[in-house]
Amino acid sequence: MRCGHPRHDVCGTGTTDGPPAGRPGDALAPPRAAAVGPQRAERDMAEIEIGGRTFAVDEEGFLQQPEIWNEEVAQLFASSEGIEAMTPEHWAVVKYIRDYWVEHGTAPLIRKITQTTGLNLRTIYQLFTSGPAKGACKIAGLPKPEGCV
C-alpha cells in the first residue's frame, strides 16, 4: 500500500514496496540531510529500550532509522518523554510534523504547526514540555533539528 508521499520509504504509513535503493530517502533528501545524516548516525549511534523494544538513537534520543517509525514507535517515544497517553491534539502535531518532514526534509515552522492544527502556541508548549524540537520532533521520528535546540 502506498500513501502518496514522495518519501514513502521513510514516512511510516503502511508498508514499503520492498527494500529502498541505497540509503532511505537519499534521492529526495535535501543535500544537507544527505551529507550530515549518515555521518551523525555512524558517529552517535546508541540504543535505548522502551516498552521492550530497542531503538537506535543518537546521543540525545533522536531516532536514527526514520524508516521504522510508525504510530506504535511514536507512542513509545512519547512515553519516554513523559506523555503517558497521546491525545488527538498530540497526534495532530506529531503527524503534521512527520508529513512535513517526509515532504520537505526539515521540521516545519511553529507557525505552520499552529495554523495547520488550529492549536494555540502555548497549548503546544504544554502538550510537549520538551518543546517542539526536543519533544514533538523526537516523537515524530525526525533527526535533531539544526540550531540552538
Binding site: A107, L109, I110, R111, L121, R122, G131, P132, A133, P145, G147, C148, V149
Partner: peptide, 11 residues
C-alpha cells in the same frame, strides 16, 4: 534574533 525564535519559540 536567534533563528530558533522564528522557528520554534516566537513568544
Amino acid at each position: 534574533l536567534n533563528p530558533r525564535e522564528i522557528k520554534f519559540f516566537p513568544l
